[in-house]
Structures are given as structure tokens and as C-alpha cells.
Design a binder for these strands. Sequence first.
DNA 1: TATGACTAGTTGTCTATACCAGTCAGAAGA
DNA 2: TCTTCTGACTGGTATAGACAACTAGTCATA
Lengths: 239, 239
Amino acid sequence: MIDKTSPLPLYYQIEEAIKQKIDKGEWESGSMISSEREFAENYEVSRMTVRQAINNLVNDGYLTRRKGKGTFVSGKKIEQKLLGLTSFTEDMKARGYKPASKLVSFQKIEANHKLAKTLEISQHDVVYEIKRVRLADEIPMAIETTFVPAELIPLNGTHIKEGSLYSQVENAGFHIDYATQSLEASIAREAESEILEIAKGAPVLLIQRQTFLTTGKPLELVHSVYRGDRYKFMIDMKR
Amino acid sequence: MIDKTSPLPLYYQIEEAIKQKIDKGEWESGSMISSEREFAENYEVSRMTVRQAINNLVNDGYLTRRKGKGTFVSGKKIEQKLLGLTSFTEDMKARGYKPASKLVSFQKIEANHKLAKTLEISQHDVVYEIKRVRLADEIPMAIETTFVPAELIPLNGTHIKEGSLYSQVENAGFHIDYATQSLEASIAREAESEILEIAKGAPVLLIQRQTFLTTGKPLELVHSVYRGDRYKFMIDMKR
DNA sequence: TATGACTAGTTGTCTATACCAGTCAGAAGA
DNA sequence: TCTTCTGACTGGTATAGACAACTAGTCATA
């Protein structure tokens, strides 16, 4: 069952063993698992070692402890797909649409004060401004404007048309860590309504996203205008 | 520094003490904190107890361990606010507003097919319907309608007016685990515009939230209509 | 029939100890 | 001078045991 001579820590082996049973569905969600003392006896390890394994699984949301009662398999596994920091492309695919993108403009601009501050660069530093129309099943879904510090990564229009920006980022050895987003409801302005093929004054969802790299530096600022009639923002949140 | 006679666990007291120093900025991000053995000596507790405190802070993203080197204060605190599954009240407080709530109606209704499916109960089961206007600094911010299965928890109007729904839930021994939310832009209808004190046709943000308990059962379905001119939904996402 | 005391089982907290495994600086040797 | 080794530090893993807090059922008593 578990190998005491293995270089893998005992608690880790136990952790994996339990996780497997849950993932395979052998232990139904909501059911009680063996007590810590039982595990300790069966695996011939100390109770503290079992606790370490169970602790990790509780932190990962697989198990739930109830004092005086026991340890139980948690409900759904939604938590695992939680936090999908997904690109437009992935997002649309997940919804069953065929995503496409139309490059409207690509240029280098000088950062103004606000943009410089957001991207944590100096004022007048060069920034790429990428304007795209995002399509789902050939129908306009959103207008997206992305700002990326030029010093971070060399880009040209071809890069954007072909691979995604994010794959360029990974190629350059950078890794996305997290993003902060804000969402608000608004009304389509004239220019937007034309591009999105909706009436002027129709509701739109404004999304602003700032993406950070593992280095802590901002990678990009993205402004999006989504059609209110076709787009719903979905998110799972954990306690 | 820490009180051995307190009913609060020692590891928890240590945890809070460390967290405070970080939050106050006394310990700069990136700097090394005392070693586990030092903490143990200073606080006169065993090293395992210190480890439990530090473990929790590492899980919460406050600290980072590096074998052979030490334990360090993590970078930005953004990750800590990550995933705030917050109530309206907490949300508004965090934004510096004074939250308030006005109970519009409270009644028991029979679940229709759709509601029953969402709440995972039988059709015609009794459900509480709670309608509230949410205020920030006395100004209407949102209209909120909450549906809770009656069999889950006994409620009356007083419960809602006084403590929050969530504290009732905790009192009943249930624990909130996660929620799925959807957000979309729309236009204020007549009735909504009156309550929210905005023009008919003004943009509103529709938020729908389904909250789940650790048992896996849905606790509630919440429909909210937020004023588009005053409310911005903020979220941090990781990786 | 209730009520309260007891009991066996659970997780929660905490100790004292041991040794392993990286890291780094400085001593010892070439 | 350069290299290697050693020791003293760090966190990582693991043990055995103790008692507290909580849960749920049993049983005796009022």
C-alpha cells in the first residue's frame, strides 16, 4: 500500500492514495473516511503523519473535517477548475463557440501617466497597443484593447495574428501569475455599437484586466467591451 | 505576547501575531522572519506548534518557506484578498462605504421547476424568498432576491433584519464552501429604476450567485441588480 | 417519560525528540 | 589562490504520547 523505503514522504504517499480513491469515485462525496487512528494503524505510521496527509487534502478541498464526528469527502470538485484565468479563446471554446479574432490595429504608443503607473513603467516608455474584435461563431462578441510594455517582449502584428499573446509570453520565459479584474455595466457608445452590431445605448459589459507575471511585474492592461446580450461572465469562487 | 491560559489555541495566537506584523508592514515583504526554533524558544512552545502557525500562514499566502534558508514574508498581499467570497456587507465595508439593508419582503413560496432544480430540492418544496434593497452610505446600490430551501434552516424576518443570513447558517452548523456566479450587463426596468433611483434604461449589472455548503448541497440562489453607475465588481484571479 | 451522567469514539491541540536534507560560510588542506 | 570539507544553521519528515473538545449513543435515575 505504501512504501516505507520510498524516497517519497509517507504523508505524501498517503495523500495520493486517498486522493485517488476520491477521484476514482470509490469514496462517495459526503461519506466518512476512516478515522485518523485507523489510518495510522493500517499504514503503520504515526497519527501525526496521517494528519499531515489529511491536512493537505483538506486545504485542497478534497476532505472536510468535523470535530467529534470524523473526516468526510467533500462535495463536488468544482474547486479544482476554480479560478480559470482563461483567455478569450479558451473561454469561448469552453462555451461551445468557435472563437476568432480580427486585428483592428497594432501600434507602438507612448505611455501616458496613468498607463505608465498601471503597467509600472516610466512615463513616455513605449507600449504596444493592440486593438482586436473578438468573434464567437463569426458574430462580434467584444472589442478588446490590450496594452503591453514594449521592453518586456518584442512583438509585431504577425505575432498577434498567429499565436496568442500568452504563448509569446511563455516563449519569452515569462509566466503569468495572477490578474485583477473589474467588471461594470455600461451603455454602448456609437462607435462600439457599430462594431458590435448592436443598437446604440444597448447594454455592454466593461471588463478591465491587469495581468501580473510571477516576477511581480504587470504584463498587460486589457480593456474589453462585451455585448450585454450575448455575454455572461462566469466565475466560481471558493470560501 | 501569547497567553497560555487563553482558550485560543497557541498556534492561532502565534499565527495572528505574525499576521499582524506583516499587515502592519513591520516585516517587509521579502524579508526573512525568525527561524522556527527561535519562535519556539521565544514563545516557549514546541517547534511543532510554531510550524502549525506558520503552515497556516503559508497556505494563506502570507509566508513562503525555503528549505535550508528560512521563512520569508510573501510579496504583494493581493493574493490574500483573492477569492473573497464576500457578503454585500463585507464588500461595501472594504470599499469604505457604510452598508445597510432594507427588507422589502420575506415570504415562503413553493419552488417551481427551475428553482427546485437549482436548489436541488423537490418541486413544490417550500423556499424562503427574501427581497432586500442594499444601501451604501444610505444610497441604494442593489436589489437582491435570495432563495433558501426552508428545510435547511428555520428563518423569519427578524433573523434577516438582525444577524446576517450567513451567521444564521454558521449557527446551524453549516459551512459555506464555494459559489458560482454569473455577471451580465442589462438595462434597468421601470420598477428597478424606481427603487435604485436611476433612470429607466440606465445600465445595471445583473449578478446571479449560487452558494454551496461543505455538504455539497446548495444553500441559496441570489439574484442581484446593481446600479451600473455606482458599482464595479472587483475580482482577483490566480494563475 | 425526561433528564443527566457516563462512555466510547471522533478530531483538535500540544509536547519533546529525533533525524533528514538543503544552504552557506568559513576553516583546513592542496 | 583555489578547492574541499566541515559545522552550524535552515526547514522537512516522522514518532509516541498526552489531554482537550466535541458527538452520539446508552443507561440509570428522578
